[in-house]
């Protein structure tokens, strides 16, 4: 299996000592590939409208990023601050809710015994196999019947629980939380919810943190459904930024400046949450 190639060089143990420079070189390559699109976006976003079609485009940023960015913020039809606020609300509520309900359900599927458990879990997973493209029409009918179209509720409510999250937490908890711990909790006289709260939840923390981050990002960048169900007076960022492309000719320096502006909060989140996340992973490992 190809997996072994880079690992072969690693002679030392996993837990003792530092990895070799080759490992860092490998990671550096991965990092360059990961950063490239953002850097490239910055090259275009800091240039002018001709940069994107310029065959001799410079690999150093131009000087227009601030000007481009402020023209995005100043553009009335983008409604930048309002849509930024909406994106923050939607992403925060959705990720908090997804994490809580997914952990609860995942814990239940992974560690509790009940009738039809397997079948129900398979059902949960199977729901993710339904192609989403067609669902748009009936979902819109439903949202319209509830009178939610045009409101953030129409974006938030369908996303409050995710089958993906439930599946992920189920798998993680079944691996990371030893059955004995759960049983010990029960023997100590804790009720079901206490067992979940004091034993299940802490053990799931690393995966929950990751699920929160993933859900936040996915919700933040989601375009299609918000585009269909929200409108210009109350949009999320990707929806309002799309109006920058509403022209016969699209000025990509402005569009990408907007995209980068919308990405900045996510990068800030990385910086703030990154340490927490890694700490979370380690902590989980120790507990496990």
């Amino acid at each position: 299996m190809t997996v072994s190639a880079p690992l072969r060089r690693r002679r030392r143990t996993l837990t003792i000592g530092r990895p070799s420079p080759i490992v860092y070189a490998f990671l550096a390559v991965v990092m360059v590939a990961s950063v490239f699109p953002l850097y490239w976006s910055f090259l275009i976003g800091s240039g002018d409208s001709s940069t994107v079609n310029d065959p001799n485009m410079s690999w150093l940023p131009g000087g227009n990023f601030l000007a481009n960015a402020s023209s995005v913020i100043g553009n009335e039809s983008v409604n930048f601050w309002k849509s930024l606020g909406n994106s923050v609300i939607v992403s925060t509520v959705v990720s908090a809710s997804v994490v809580f309900f997914s952990t609860l359900a995942g814990y239940s599927f992974a560690k509790l015994r009940f009738r039809a458990k397997k079948g129900l879990l398979v059902f949960v997973i199977a729901t993710t196999a339904v192609p989403t493209q067609l669902g748009v029409v009936p979902l819109f009918i439903a949202m319209s019947a509830f009178g939610w179209t045009g409101t953030l509720g129409a974006v938030i409510v369908p996303a409050l629980v995710s089958a993906f999250g439930v599946f992920w937490m189920t798998q993680y908890i079944s691996q990371a939380l030893p059955d004995e711990l759960v049983e010990a909790g029960r023997i100590d006289g804790a009720n079901m919810f206490q067992t979940f709260w004091y034993i299940g939840l802490p053990s799931a923390r690393p995966a929950a943190a990751m699920l929160a981050l993933f859900t936040f990002i996915t919700t933040w960048t989601n375009f299609f459904w918000p585009f269909i169900v929200l409108n210009a007076t109350n949009p999320t960022l990707p929806v309002s930024l799309a109006t920058l492309q509403a022209n016969y000719f699209v000025d990509y320096s402005i569009v990408l400046a907007g995209v980068l502006l919308a990405t900045l909060p996510l990068i800030a989140l990385f910086v703030l949450a990154g340490r927490q996340l890694v700490a979370g992973i380690m902590q989980g490992a120790v507990k496990g």
Binding site: P37, L38, F214, I217, F223, Q245, V259, A262, I267, F270
Partner: peptide
Amino acid sequence: PYIVMPVA
């Protein structure tokens, strides 16, 4: 790469 928006 996961945070890059589809348009980009």
